[in-house]
């Protein structure tokens, strides 16, 4: 019961700041829209065709890129909550309550996950209806989004153990997200990375592989489910590893 109470508490705090809500929903939608307009224009001038079987492949790739980039940023909420509540003076009051510390941590993670998955659903919904993106196997998309969001929570919490300020957590998580996005397809800048590393080691790249961004036509044709499942397996392994690292650090640097 206390877990539900702490989750509800953190959700309430996340939604009290309308700027944060707008940042996680309207901003990605806006970026996707602008990128699609730009890319459509470039493709048309080059005489290329974005569409395949009525699906907009460019819009699909851009949506997934922005979606996973923002999901990878979502861990900032759990990280900042842990930092402010359990690493500063407020921890004395929270520790004085008859509630184990883990309840606060899991509550923050759960609330942050709900917040980020809600924004993911909004982004996908808007893109699906507005830009005719191809969702492929919706279960694979949901699992990939879930795992990237969960990975981000662990990253946010790990950073909160070492950060000196709330703003530092924000900066580091965003830097990680932007860098990984730049490594897998370019967001504003493109960091060239060998294909093997991009599709097997960089989390956003593995997520793209899972949802078929790198091979959209075969995805649409339905010939690449095994590849998707391998990518999902890699994401599960990465998430599990990050979870273990979080636990080890939490034990060594107790609240």
């Amino acid at each position: 019961m206390n877990f539900l109470i702490t989750t509800k508490h953190y959700l309430k705090r996340f939604f009290t700041n309308p700027l944060e809500v707008a940042l996680m929903t309207l901003l990605p939608a806006g970026i996707i829209f602008i990128n699609i307009l730009v890319f459509d224009n470039i493709a048309n001038e080059a005489g290329a065709d974005n569409m395949y079987n009525s699906y907009n492949l460019a819009a699909t790739a851009i949506t997934m890129m922005i979606l996973f980039m923002f999901q990878l940023m979502s861990g900032v909420y759990a990280g900042q909550s842990i930092f402010v509540d359990l690493r500063q003076d407020r921890r004395w009051r929270l520790m004085a309550a008859p509630v184990p510390m883990s309840t606060y941590v899991f509550g923050a993670i759960a609330a942050s996950m709900i917040f980020s998955l809600t924004t993911a659903a909004l982004i996908l919904g808007v893109s699906f209806f507005a830009f005719n993106i191809f969702l492929g196997n919706i279960a694979i998309v949901v699992v990939a989004v879930f795992l990237i969001a969960l990975m981000s929570q662990f990253i946010g919490i790990i950073i909160s153990f070492f950060a000196k300020s709330k703003g530092a957590i924000d900066g580091i998580v965003m830097a990680i997200s932007f860098t990984m996005s730049a490594m897998v397809g370019g967001f504003l800048i493109n960091i060239p990375v060998p294909q093997f590393i991009r599709e097997n080691i960089i989390p956003t790249g593995v997520a793209f592989r899972a949802v078929g961004v790198y091979d959209p036509i075969n995805t649409i044709a339905g010939y690449r489910m095994n590849d998707s499942l391998i990518a999902i397996g890699i994401l599960i392994g990465m998430t599990f590893l990050l979870g273990i690292v979080t636990l080890v650090i939490a034990r060594r640097r107790p609240f």
């Binding site: 309430k12 009290t16 003076d89 004395w92 004085a96 309550a97 008859p98 509630v99």
Partner: peptide, 20 residues
């Protein structure tokens, strides 16, 4: 955890939630 049920602490620092 049981003992904490019947204890209350007023911390020297302000430890309420400023966003609620």
């Amino acid at each position: 955890v049981d003992i904490k049920q019947d204890m209350g602490i007023v911390t020297q620092e302000l430890t309420v939630f400023s966003d609620l």
